[in-house]
């Protein structure tokens, strides 16, 4: 039973008379310095993923006579033991570094959101079933399972992406479920029920948009997790085929070149860390921005 609340507008900081006139118009908050840097990094990385192959179509050209070499003319960051240009390889490798995590984040978000919405809204046995499923999957060590599944059953990169998408979905599921529970009994949902709206309309038209900021932020966290995980798999020689441009593979293949051309290993390592960090920080800010959009006076 509801207790009569205080006059409503007293909740926020005191606002003279009523919300100001810029009312209604959406204002996205400025991302701030760090947010701006993250945004720029992510934009550059995705541009590299999209255009890298076009800009450097001959990245795989070998120069066995040259072999490994340090930074110099023609090769700003040197070459690996096959004489391939490190910078070009890394730029072209952005695609495999980003496509997989994107698929994993989107797939895990789709699966997790569907299950979470259903469990949170339906409650009862559906909630119990989904909850146990999430517990089960969460208790599995994701990387180990992927190594075993892909290593034993084969399937390469696509299989690794699929397995990781399923394995990272429980965090989405749990997050969305609890967010739905918080919205479930708010008057706006009950008002929608009182209008006889369909369950699908209430779930996807009303509740989901309000859960989306958290879901999106979590998807970005999943993205950076997947980026690291896929790079680790490549490092272990699972997933990406030999000879492909990939940061993880560069790391594992070039680790012996540490003294001849440190850039050959440091560049991909730095890229993995930078990309994961930038996306992670962006996730935080995206949530704040989306939350604010709805609550901006």
């Amino acid at each position: 039973m509801t207790v009569p609340a205080e006059p409503a507008a007293d909740r926020g900081p005191a606002v003279p008379v009523r919300p100001a006139g810029a009312a209604g118009r959406r204002r996205l908050p400025r991302p701030g310095l760090l947010g701006g840097v993250c945004l720029a990094v992510v934009a550059v990385l995705f541009a590299a993923a999209a255009l890298g192959g076009l800009v450097f179509p001959h990245w795989a050209r070998q120069d066995l006579l040259l072999g490994v070499s340090g930074p110099g003319a023609g090769h700003p960051l040197g070459t690996d033991d096959l004489g391939r240009d490190i910078l070009q390889t890394a730029v072209v490798g952005t695609r495999s570094a980003l496509v997989g995590p994107t698929l994993i984040a989107v797939g895990s978000m789709a699966l997790g959101n569907l299950l979470g919405l259903w469990a949170g809204y339906r409650g009862g046995w559906a909630d119990a079933l989904v909850g146990r499923w999430a517990d089960l999957v969460l208790s599995l060590p994701a990387l180990l399972v992927t190594v075993v599944v892909v290593g034993v059953l084969g399937g390469g990169y696509p299989a690794a992406v699929l397995v990781l998408a399923v394995l990272s979905s429980p965090t989405d599921t749990r997050l969305v479920r609890s967010a739905v529970l918080a919205q479930r009994h708010l008057p706006y949902v009950e008002a929608a029920e009182a209008l006889g709206l369909s369950r699908r309309r209430i779930l996807f038209g009303h509740i989901w948009p309000n859960v989306l900021p958290q879901a999106l932020a979590n998807a970005l966290v999943n993205f950076s997790f997947a980026l690291v995980a896929l790079s680790s798999l490549s490092f272990l020689g699972i997933g990406v085929p030999p000879g492909a441009a990939d940061w993880g593979r560069m790391l594992s293949e070039n680790q012996t070149l540490m003294y001849d051309n440190p850039a050959a290993t440091l560049l991909p390592a730095l890229l993995v860390v930078t990309a994961a960090t930038a996306v992670n920080l962006l996730g935080d800010r995206a949530q704040d921005a989306l939350d604010l959009r709805a609550r901006t006076r």
């Binding site: 509801t2 009569p4 409503a8 708010l186 008057p187 706006y188 008002a191 929608a192 209008l195 709805a294």
Partner: peptide, 14 residues
């Protein structure tokens, strides 16, 4: 039809 108490949560913010 029903009108609820809290004007802040009875409309979908988005």
């Amino acid at each position: 039809q029903i009108v609820f108490q809290d004007p802040y949560s009875s409309l979908n913010p988005v």
